[in-house]
């Protein structure tokens, strides 16, 4: 079941948008190359919003401690985060960004509950 997370107009190339109408919140990214991705918004190391991170080469760098996550696979590249984030399926319907949430269990940091 997909839902409309936002519109393309809500997105800025190279930046993320936090969607907190779902729990845990997700982050939608529009890359400079024009691709749209959705991952869990919360870093797996400590409670921080990945939507505020630096996007480059289809990865987002957590704004707090420099672990980066692939926007395609959710995999993490370096500590301090050890686990990847979930990736959600994105479909575009015109300007609508439709997201189907992953059914996997999220990797949330200590202290963050759904």
């Amino acid at each position: 079941m997909s839902f409309k997370a936002c519109s393309l107009q809500d997105l800025t190339p190279g930046e993320g948008l936090r969607i907190d109408s779902v729990s845990p919140p997700i982050a939608i990214f529009l890359t400079e190359e024009g691709t749209v991705h959705a991952i869990d918004d919360t870093c797996t190391h400590q409670d921080a919003s990945l939507a505020a991170g630096w996007v480059e080469d289809c990865r987002v760098e957590c704004p707090l401690h420099e672990s980066t996550f692939s926007l395609r696979t959710g995999a993490v590249d370096q500590p301090p985060a050890k686990k990847g984030v979930r990736v959600h399926t994105v479909e575009l319907d015109g300007d609508d960004v439709l997201v189907e949430l992953s059914q996997d269990a999220p990797n949330l940091p200590p202290g963050v509950k759904i």
Binding site: D20, D41, A48, W54, E61, C62, P63, L64
Partner: peptide
């Protein structure tokens, strides 16, 4: 990429806004 305080990791965009901090989303 950002200006980050080394004490509690309060993190500022180059444009000066606070963009991240531990537990800021709550």
């Amino acid at each position: 990429k950002t200006l980050q305080c080394g004490y509690h990791a309060w993190t500022y965009a180059l444009e000066g806004d606070l963009v991240a901090a531990p537990n800021l989303t709550s």
